[in-house]
Structure formats: C-alpha cells, structure tokens
C-alpha cells in the first residue's frame, strides 16, 4: 500500500480533519498511482534495465554466475557491497532450501527482502508539538533548500498548517534569496538574518518568530557542508543546541538530504551527520534521474535511519512520502 501525506505525518485531531477525507480518497489513490508510475518510469529510464537483468538471471538455471550477476545488478543500483552480499546470500539460502521456485517467486522475495531493510525505525513525522521544529541538513548540493520549500508547501496545503521558514544558510551566496522565493510560493512566514550572520542566531530568531506568531511548524534550512569539515559540523550541532534551549524537545525532526546519485560515501555522510545532530530521517532527492538511490538501503541497514521523503522532480508536487515497498519494487522491476 503506497503511502500518502496523511500516512506520513501525525497531526493532532483538529488538524487531521483537514487531511484528505474518504471523499478525497479516490483522488488521493489516483495521485498516488500517478506518482508510483512516474517513479517507476523514471527508474526504468536506464538502458541496462536492472529489472530485465534480474528477470533474465533468475529465470535461467541458478548457478554461481547468476548470483554474481544479481549482485552486480544491486551494486549497480548503489546498494553497496555489504548490503548486497547480505541480501543475495539470504535469497540464495532460501532458493537452495527449495522454498522459492521460478523467477516470479524469486523476484517477489527479493522485493520483500529489500523492502524489509528499507523499513526501519520510526518512519513517520510527528507534527503534534506546537511549533514542531524541523531541522534540514546535508552535504552541498543535495537539495536542502528545495526540500525545505516544498515541505512548507505540502504542510500548508495538505494540512492547513502555518509554516515558518528560517534561512540559516548564511554562507552560500544567494541561498537566503533562494529560500525566500520558496517562502513566497508556499505562503510561509520567512525569517532571515543579515548576510554572514551566525546560523545559530537565525535559528534562534526562527524559533522566536514561530512562538510569537503561534505557527505550527518551523523549518530551519542550513548551509550544505561536507561531513569531513569538523568546524562546520560543530556549527550545526550548535544550531541544534540553540533550538533545544528555547524548546526542550526541539528539533522534533532532523532530516538529512541525500542525493540519490550518491555512491558509497553516502553511508559516511549519514553516519557523521547522525553523530553530530541525531538525524531522525532521510530525504532521498533526485530520484527522477537514472540513479536508483540504493545507498538509502545501505544507510537503513547499517544505521537504522529510515527514509521519510523522496524527491522525484522539480515541481512542487514532486516531494513525496517514502514507501519502502514501492521503492524496493521500483528498484528491481
């Protein structure tokens, strides 16, 4: 069952009335299908279709070479050597035990195994705290600002929530202006500081503004940084502390954006960001290319961090809740 925004976020009772009701369910289902089809279409846009490779491999006689080819197919999807070996070994074991016969059963089981890995931890976003503070972080160019903007749009449109966007990326040229455009598009309140201000002080102003105006959600955008830049990771931890000082449980959600084209370095990124700021979920962006985002599986498997949102295009609607089974299926079909 594919997930919709109402499945992803938890809002209080009054708000959930605003969420799509059964009347709108048909429309939601239609949209969901459209999304799934698009995701799959996009993932299919590859000359060496992974699915065909797997089908061909699994329908023939299973020998050492078939398993190796299956491994290669998963490695090609950036799943990584370790997680790949783990999945293929399990499939091989079950096949040898005689439980799985035929390409269909094998690929169905493969989907199950992959989805089980992707499904980890608490994969919902709880918005009942008022205001709920969402901190965005990630490596340069992974799509933080865009995700922050689109998320603001969805939360206000789908749930009627009042959102504040705080531009704590005070480093990259014109990053503040970029977020401001998103604030205008989504009708969010916008908080910024003068150029080159300490990001912590922008976050502080953001929390104050959200408290003053009685906003429901505050989304704090931060500057992209490589996880290897210790001083910048320290700066990010400070932003988190500043927020926690004003609201004890905040940030309630810390989202790490990971570019779907990222290779095995994504694991290091997630690991180090998680150490610095307790990442609660991933946003897997740019899934509309030919990259399959298999690194998210490696991250889920090794670190237990769930994917919560995916980015499948440049339009406002192209930020979607993550669905483990859809993702796994799109990966191998």
């Amino acid at each position: 069952m594919a997930r919709d925004w109402a499945d992803l976020v938890i809002v209080d009772a009054a708000r959930s009335m605003l969420a799509p009701e059964p009347a709108a369910a048909a429309e939601a289902t239609r949209r969901r299908r459209g999304m799934f089809t698009r995701l799959r279409e996009n993932l299919r846009k590859t000359r060496q279709a992974l699915g065909a490779e797997i089908q061909a491999t699994l329908s023939g006689e299973l020998d050492a070479e078939s398993w190796e080819r299956l491994e290669e197919a998963l490695i090609y999807a950036d799943v990584g050597a370790r997680t790949t070996a783990q999945v293929v070994a399990e499939l091989e074991r079950e096949a040898a035990a005689g439980g799985l016969v035929g390409a269909e059963a094998l690929s169905a089981r493969l989907v199950e195994l992959l989805a089980a890995i992707a499904r980890t931890g608490d994969d919902r976003i709880d918005l009942r705290a008022k205001p709920t503070v969402i901190l965005m972080a990630g490596v340069n160019g992974t799509g933080k600002t865009t995700t922050a903007g689109k998320l603001a749009h969805h939360l206000s449109r789908e749930f009627g929530l009042r959102v504040v966007l705080a531009a704590a990326d005070t480093f990259r040229a014109a990053a503040v202006e970029q977020l401001e455009v998103w604030a205008q598009r989504s009708g969010a309140q916008f908080v910024r500081g003068p150029d080159g201000t300490d990001p912590g002080s922008v976050a502080y102003d953001g929390v104050s503004a959200a408290l003053d105006s009685g906003a429901d959600v505050l989304i704090i955008d931060t500057a992209g940084r490589l996880h290897t830049q210790e001083d910048l990771m320290g700066e990010l931890a400070k932003v988190r502390r500043v927020v926690a000082k004003q609201i004890p449980d905040a940030p309630h959600e810390t989202l790490l954006t990971v570019d779907a084209t990222t290779g095995q370095n994504g694991l290091r990124q997630a690991q180090i960001f998680a150490q610095a700021i307790e990442v609660s979920g991933l946003v897997l962006t740019k899934l509309d290319g030919t990259a399959k985002g298999g690194i998210a599986l490696a991250i889920a498997s090794d670190l237990g961090i769930p994917v919560k949102l995916i980015g499948i295009g440049e339009r406002l609607d192209d930020l979607r809740p993550f669905d483990a089974e859809d993702f796994a299926r799109a990966l191998v079909q």
Binding site: Y76, V139, D259, T261, G266, Q269, T290, A291
Partner: peptide
C-alpha cells in the same frame, strides 16, 4: 561531476 557520485556517473 560530484566526486561523491555513485554507479550512475557513467550514464550521466
């Protein structure tokens, strides 16, 4: 090209 790109770099 981003140095962190994975397997997809070839297609890009």
């Amino acid at each position: 090209v981003d140095a962190m790109t994975g397997q997809d770099a070839v297609q890009v």
